[in-house]
C-alpha cells in the first residue's frame, strides 16, 4: 500500500479530478496528438508561444489518473517558461522517471516530483510521459516551421 500511496498521492488524485488547463485552444501555434497504442490513452496538447515563451498550453483527451494528472501538472509547470527551459524540464522529468544514471545538467522538478513514484511501476511510466512527449512534438512542429522560414 505504501507504494500505492506514493503513486497515487493526493496532489495526483486532485489533478486527475480537477484538471487544470483542460480545454482546446483555437488556432494554436502548436498542436500534437499523442496516443499510447497499448492502452488507448489519447492526449491532445495545444500550445501558444509569445517571444519564445510558453504563453498558453492546454490539453484534452482521455487517459488514466497518472496520464491525466501528469498532463494537468505539465501545463501548470510549463506556463511562462522559455522554450529552452521547457525542453530542459521535459528532459529532466523524463530522466527522473526512466533513468538510473545521474544527469548533472537536470533542472529541479519542483511540484512534478510527486510523479517520480511512477518509476516503481515500469508499465505506468508511459502514462506519465505521454503528455510531455506530445508537448515536445507540438513544440518541435513550431520550431520546424520557424526553421524553414
Amino acid at each position: 500500500m505504501d507504494n500505492l500511496r506514493e503513486l497515487y498521492q493526493e496532489v495526483i488524485l486532485d489533478h486527475n479530478k480537477n484538471k487544470r488547463n483542460y480545454r482546446k485552444i483555437d488556432n494554436p501555434d502548436g498542436f500534437a496528438h499523442g496516443v499510447n497504442p497499448l492502452c488507448g490513452d489519447q492526449i491532445d496538447v495545444y500550445l501558444n508561444l509569445r517571444d519564445g515563451v510558453v504563453a498558453d498550453v492546454s490539453f484534452d483527451g482521455h487517459g488514466c489518473a497518472i496520464c491525466t494528472s501528469s498532463a494537468s501538472m505539465m501545463t501548470v509547470a510549463l506556463k511562462g517558461k522559455t522554450e529552452a527551459d521547457a525542453q530542459a524540464l521535459f528532459e529532466s522529468f523524463h530522466h527522473a522517471l526512466t533513468d538510473d544514471e545521474p544527469h548533472p545538467e537536470d533542472v529541479p522538478l519542483g511540484k512534478l516530483n510527486v510523479l517520480t513514484g511512477v518509476k516503481e511501476f515500469p508499465v505506468r511510466v508511459k502514462c506519465a510521459t505521454l503528455a510531455w512527449h506530445t508537448f515536445d512534438a507540438a513544440l518541435k512542429k513550431i520550431q520546424g516551421e520557424i526553421s524553414t522560414e
Partner: peptide, 13 residues
C-alpha cells in the same frame, strides 16, 4: 470514476 489502468495497478497491489 477510475480508469481501467488505475484499477489494474490498484488490484495488482
Amino acid at each position: 470514476q477510475v480508469h481501467p489502468h488505475d484499477i489494474g495497478t490498484m488490484l495488482d497491489m
